[in-house]
């Protein structure tokens, strides 16, 4: 993993069109500003992980019997 030291106001460019700027550092928290094209999704990692965990739980728990049960209920 690449590690870069930056000060408040300094930027990191990722590829052609993504720019990350350090806006503020307060105690143990860093506030970042991110400029990215509309099609690039920017998410806190825990948001992505929450969905990933739910998908894996769903894949583990869903079976044909449940599918047939839903089909039967669905008009």
């Amino acid at each position: 993993m690449l590690s870069l030291a930056r000060r408040v106001g300094q930027k990191i460019r990722i590829g052609e069109d993504i720019v990350v700027v350090v806006r503020e550092i307060r105690g143990r928290q860093v506030k970042l500003g991110i400029e990215a094209p509309e099609h690039v999704r920017v998410l806190r990692e825990e948001i992505y992980e929450e969905t990933a965990e739910a998908n894996l739980e769903a894949a583990e728990r869903t079976d044909l019997a449940f599918f047939e049960r839903l089909r039967g209920l669905h008009p």
């Binding site: 509309e38 099609h39 929450e50 739910a54 769903a58 728990r61 869903t62 449940f66 839903l70």
Partner: peptide, 28 residues
Amino acid sequence: TLLGESALLVRVVAWPAEEEGKLYANLF
């Protein structure tokens, strides 16, 4: 924007809840 198409269907993942007769749906 991502899929480049305006006529999209939206669906959600569903799976059995621990409690009988209930399901989870990921509306988020």
